[in-house]
Design a protein around this nucleic acid. Structure first.
Lengths: 236, 236
DNA sequence: CGAGACTTTGACCGTAGTCAATTTATGTGG
DNA sequence: CCACATAAATTGACTACGGTCAAAGTCTCG
């Protein structure tokens, strides 16, 4: 029911990325070319392990941060979407946190993207990203710590919707969700079976609809459910 | 069963703090005096709300980061112990994250503490603290996302033990735990009742013992249980 | 000593997990 | 383009971990 195919964003879907490209030096075409030449690409279901810790910006595709327990249990910390900045390397090899691609992924060195930008600004952007990331981790803790199964699913879907919306990846309230129900289960601390039943129920209640691998959040009635949480703004 | 009284650390209990005081300028007594004059004190069960965001070092006492849901549910993100650095203000007022003192608490401006220290070093120390904090948030996610009740309790107790041990607050494997079972429940995403039953069971099994408000982890047999997690090093 | 906070216990309930089988994509090679 | 192999989604039957409710017992402290 949830799509498992890969995101293949069109040019239109990367506005936030290019906004961060400075516009003051060299021809735009030159810089664009330079940029695309240095983009790193990953296949779906591959692990991103960078020996040298770097800050990378996600140009396209989905990644998730995951930890595998010795007995096979798995916990997903967060989903990383186009426009996000992610720190590769460092952690990765300790078996503490892995970066797992869910689709084809394109990464660009964040430093490169900030070339020509006021260093102070770049610094501020990084700091901002860090703060948002922390905020998301806290949300995740509340989600799995204090919300019911249904609330968890809705809450996460709303978060993903809003984040994708911010980078223009939502069309008519629908977005591509390259996440299997098993992944969802591991993100929300639930079992696949229960995720499935919860989704079915939500579909029957008209809260969400599925279509050709896309998911759509209907009404912000969903948000009522989520009043339990702190989701404040956002519209559909 | 868990202690509810306040920690009142002796001078001996603050080694890590003073290590960060530079030792190259002014008389030590002067600096010490200066330092203590600017320490901010908080009562137990008070909220630390700083209008101006600052990095503060915990000199003594316990704090927890908490979020309150509209319907009364509560989630504790982390416990902040002596020697830790915490960012006050900023978040605090949004209702997104509160800093709640569990005991009498003494805070010192981290900037002040780093006076006379190589700025680069200070910077590195902050970065380190950030990384550790993030690591702890990830551990917390795994805990409430994928561990059983018993595992959660043991895992958190081991984390607290090891962190307190690192700053010299563990004596003979025992440490003061100024956390009510209700707080514990809210940290681990469980109910008070179940926390109580789990603790009792662990006591009966000889994994932990309680004495005069202190808790003691017996054997690292506990760790066997925790193999499920990533707790690697540490000894008793 | 009394009030309030915290802990403990029992009885019962329900959300979510487990196991296992079936159905439905998705994808690959011939 | 079809047959088969594999991954993913679905469903049912049953279980159990942990929650809820309510009452009683302890501890602290003014």
């Amino acid at each position: 029911m949830l799509a498992s195919t890969c995101v293949h964003p069109t040019a239109k879907s990367r506005p936030s990325i290019f906004h961060t490209l400075g516009s003051d030096s060299g021809s735009y075409a030159d810089r664009l070319h330079q940029f695309w030449k240095q983009v790193e690409r990953f296949k779906p279901k591959s692990t991103i392990s960078d020996s040298t810790p770097r800050l990378m910006a996600v140009v396209s595709g989905w990644i998730c941060e995951v930890r595998l327990l010795p007995d096979g249990r798995r916990q997903i910390f967060s989903f990383i979407l186009p426009g996000d900045v992610v720190a590769t390397g460092g952690f990765t090899d300790v078996g503490v946190r892995e970066l797992l691609t869910l689709t084809h992924v394109e990464l660009a060195d964040a430093a490169l993207m900030n070339a020509g930008v006021d260093p102070a600004l770049a610094q501020a952007a990084i700091a901002d990203a860090q703060r948002e990331r922390e905020q998301r981790l806290l949300d995740q803790i509340v989600r799995i710590g204090r919300l019911t199964a249904k609330e968890r699913v809705l809450n996460l879907l709303v978060e993903l919707h809003d984040r994708l919306d911010a980078v223009g990846l939502v069309r008519n309230g629908a977005f591509r969700l390259p996440v299997t129900q098993e992944l969802f289960a591991d993100a929300l601390g639930l079992s696949v079976v229960h995720i499935n039943r919860t989704l079915q129920q939500m579909r029957r209640e008209g809260l969400v609809s599925f279509e050709a691998g896309d998911i759509q959040l209907n009404k912000r009635a969903a948000l009522a459910q989520l009043a339990a949480c702190e989701v404040a703004a956002a519209e559909t």
